[in-house]
């Protein structure tokens, strides 16, 4: 049910959104349905004792209260078997660092919707570099105004165009890191 119905369904919705067949309202309705499904499945999955395939801390950067994209990514990551710690919106660098320290994730995810807030991702990454912890984490960034060039410029490991790309990239990078 998780893989074929919920994740599979959202993957199709994501593709149709990218291709201009579906629009934001339809994506959000589908996400609401998946959220409801996940609420039912989560405790059942926990009972199976299945280990997560990786851990992610995710949050929207300081100055930005938009979380639709972040929530979609968090949900798709959870559906794909990741443990996701969502630290919310308007997150300053100190809170990102505290969450990394507390949860020791494989991945840090940062989201921004505004052109004015997306440069804050570089503040977080530069602070991680200063503290000598940048290479301890896979850093993925995403959000409507971002692009690959921006992701490269701020020093992220990857720019995720959408939630499906985030999941694929996360799986690939976590596997590569563990194999190294």
């Amino acid at each position: 049910m998780l893989n074929e119905a919920l994740v599979g369904g959202m993957t199709i919705v994501g593709i149709d959104f990218r291709d201009g067949i579906l629009f934001v309202p339809e994506v959000l309705s589908a996400a609401n349905a998946m959220k409801g499904g996940m609420a039912i499945l989560r405790p059942l999955l926990a009972e199976t004792g299945a280990e997560s395939i990786g851990k992610m801390v995710i949050g929207t950067v300081k100055g930005d209260i938009h979380d639709i994209g972040k929530n979609l990514v968090a949900m798709m990551m959870e559906g794909a078997g990741f443990e996701v710690i969502d630290i919310g919106i308007n997150i300053p660098v100190e809170d990102y660092l505290a969450a990394l320290e507390e949860h020791k994730p494989d991945i840090l995810g940062m989201s921004a919707l505004l052109t004015t807030t997306m440069p804050y991702m570089k503040v977080v990454i530069d602070t991680m570099k200063e503290k000598g912890i940048r290479d301890d984490y896979i850093v993925l960034v995403g959000g409507a105004p971002l692009n690959q060039e921006f992701g490269d410029a701020v020093g992220a490991c990857g720019y995720c165009r959408d939630a499906a790309v985030a999941v694929d990239m996360a799986k690939e990078m976590v596997a590569a890191r563990r194999a190294a």
Binding site: P25, L28, S29, N32, I68, I89
Partner: peptide, 18 residues
């Protein structure tokens, strides 16, 4: 434009933090 006429239940997703 944001589909709220047909899907008012999406209001909290769009404006929950406003």
């Amino acid at each position: 434009g944001m589909g709220l006429e047909d899907k008012p239940e999406l209001m909290p997703m769009y404006f929950g933090h406003y």
